[in-house]
């Protein structure tokens, strides 16, 4: 079977926010030049899910696909070093300043150009925008079923069997292939690239497609195609005043806190 994992390169989501700056004019969050860029963590777990399927189903092909600037190639390199078989790079100025819709449209176009696939895996949400829209959007654009928030993904015959996280438990859902599955952190840690696969990765095939290669109308991609307009970005203000409970012992600190909470009518 053929699995396509969609993966985005993002500024290190664990980095201190002092490494970012808000450009009010451009309505953008701008990472510092030295900041490390990584494959978005849930996307790494989506690659992991694909590799686990391949281990059980030899002959499975895992492609990693990314849309972004030329540097997004690093997301592909990482996925290939983890063990994916090949990569698809969608780097074209025409894709720039898009939104979830234009991104999903371009990715769906590239999946079609590949001749379709059996399973599309995405992260539950990208670690920069935190939207969680592209995965479900792909399911709609490709006209296939969606199963979101997967903690386990098994492919048996022409069926995908997903254990999905609920607010109050889990459920096991089966969908016919082809399908889109979004992966959540409950899947468990993604493997680190091995030395062997990293050395191998340089020789794995990567195709780069432009907007024209996907045959999408110019008005539907990048800034021209957006449906969602960002009007403002800002950092919420915190009052930052914390009253510290000082004391010679934990008992004293605890007694003070209990009293203050009573005064504040919190208990």
């Amino acid at each position: 079977m053929h699995i396509v994992v969609c993966a985005k390169l993002v500024p290190d989501p664990e980095a201190a926010f002092s490494m970012f700056r808000i450009d009010g004019q451009a309505r953008k969050v701008v990472p510092a030049p030295g900041l490390r860029w990584v494959m978005s963590p849930f996307d790494e777990q989506a690659v992991e899910a694909a590799l686990r399927i391949r281990e059980k189903r030899p002959g499975t092909r895992v492609s990693v696909m990314t849309l972004g600037a030329e540097t997004a190639r690093n997301a592909l390199k990482h996925g290939l070093a983890m063990g994916a078989d090949d990569g698809v790079l969608l780097a074209d100025a025409a894709f720039e300043d898009g939104d979830s819709y234009t991104t999903a449209l371009a990715l769906s176009g590239a999946i079609r150009r590949l001749g379709g696939c059996d399973l599309v895996l995405t992260g539950r949400q990208a670690a920069d925008g935190n939207a969680g829209v592209v995965g479900p959007g792909l399911a709609e654009l490709l006209g296939v079923p969606l199963v979101s928030f997967a903690r386990d993904v098994q492919a048996e015959g022409r069926t995908v069997r997903v254990e999905r996280v609920l607010d109050d438990g889990t459920e096991v859902v089966e969908a016919p292939l082809p399908a889109v599955v979004t992966v959540s952190n409950e899947l468990g840690a993604a493997r680190a690239p091995s030395l062997r696969e990293t050395l191998h990765a340089a020789r794995k095939p990567v195709v780069a497609w432009s907007a024209a290669d996907l045959g999408l109308p110019a008005g539907e991609i990048g800034a021209a195609g957006i449906r969602c307009v960002r009007e403002r970005v800002f950092v919420p203000v915190k009052d930052g005043r914390c009253e510290m409970m000082e004391g010679a012992s934990p008992e004293e600190q605890a007694a003070k806190l209990a009293l203050r909470l009573r005064e504040a009518k919190a208990i």
């Binding site: 009253e243 934990p250 600190q253 605890a254 209990a258």
Partner: peptide
């Protein structure tokens, strides 16, 4: 502590049982 209104610097293993006792007393 930048988001908290009240804070205790300490080991939870000591602070939490003490707090349980204080809350029960109150």
């Amino acid at each position: 502590f930048r988001d908290a209104r009240f804070g205790i610097v300490g080991d939870f293993q000591k602070v939490v049982p003490a707090l349980v006792a204080e809350v029960r007393k109150l």
